Amino acid sequence: MSKLHDWQAIAEMKPPPPFALRVTGKVKGYDGQTVELAPAVPQGINPKILMLQLTIKGRGTKPGDLDGSYTDADYKSQFEQVTILYESEAVTVDILLAS
């Protein structure tokens, strides 16, 4: 059963620039924990896919869903998809355009 679910990526392309890319979704974790998303280092071999590494910080006792989000406030429209990496899982979503 996947720990990653309900991920989406939306590019906000309303003029004037700068444009923004917002990635949101959920990961299974515990109350009191926080989710961090950052560009993976190194990125993958496909330059059209942004790879984000998800990490969970802290401890908790009650299982549940944690919200994750990532924003690129100076998005240049260089990606078509986003892949979220967590432990041995990966989920890839298409970037939707909002104008």
Rank of each mutant, 00 (worst) to 15 (best):
M1K: 13
S2M: 10
S2T: 14
L4Q: 09
L4W: 06
L4K: 11
L4S: 11
H5Y: 10
H5V: 04
D6H: 10
D6L: 13
D6C: 07
D6N: 13
W7R: 11
A9F: 10
A9Y: 04
I10R: 09
I10D: 01
A11G: 15
A11K: 07
A11L: 12
M13A: 08
K14S: 13
K14C: 09
P16K: 04
P16L: 04
P16M: 06
P17K: 13
P18T: 07
P18A: 12
P18K: 06
F19H: 14
F19L: 12
F19Y: 15
A20I: 02
L21M: 04
L21Q: 01
L21T: 01
R22H: 13
V23D: 00
V23R: 00
V23C: 01
V23E: 00
T24K: 15
T24H: 07
T24C: 09
G25R: 01
K26L: 05
K26C: 01
K26F: 01
K28L: 11
G29W: 00
G29E: 00
Y30I: 06
Y30C: 11
Y30H: 12
D31C: 12
Q33H: 07
Q33S: 11
T34Y: 03
V35A: 05
E36A: 14
E36T: 15
L37M: 15
L37E: 04
L37P: 02
L37Q: 05
A38G: 06
A38L: 07
P39K: 11
P39T: 09
V41K: 15
P42A: 06
P42D: 05
Q43F: 03
Q43Y: 03
G44W: 04
G44N: 07
G44I: 05
I45H: 07
I45S: 14
K48T: 13
I49Y: 02
I49G: 07
L50T: 05
L50S: 06
L52N: 00
L52P: 00
L52D: 00
Q53L: 08
Q53C: 05
T55D: 10
I56A: 09
K57N: 14
G58S: 05
R59E: 15
G60H: 03
G60I: 03
T61F: 06
K62W: 02
P63Y: 04
P63R: 11
G64K: 10
D65G: 05
D65C: 07
L66P: 07
L66N: 05
L66R: 08
L66A: 03
D67N: 13
D67T: 11
G68F: 05
S69L: 10
Y70C: 04
Y70V: 03
T71C: 10
D72K: 00
D72V: 02
A73F: 08
A73C: 06
D74E: 11
D74L: 04
Y75C: 06
K76W: 02
E80I: 07
Q81H: 13
V82E: 00
V82C: 01
T83G: 04
I84S: 03
I84K: 09
I84N: 02
L85N: 01
L85G: 00
Y86C: 10
Y86W: 13
E87F: 02
E89P: 10
A90Y: 02
A90K: 15
A90L: 04
V91Q: 07
T92H: 11
V93L: 05
D94P: 03
D94T: 11
I95T: 06
L96F: 04
A98F: 06
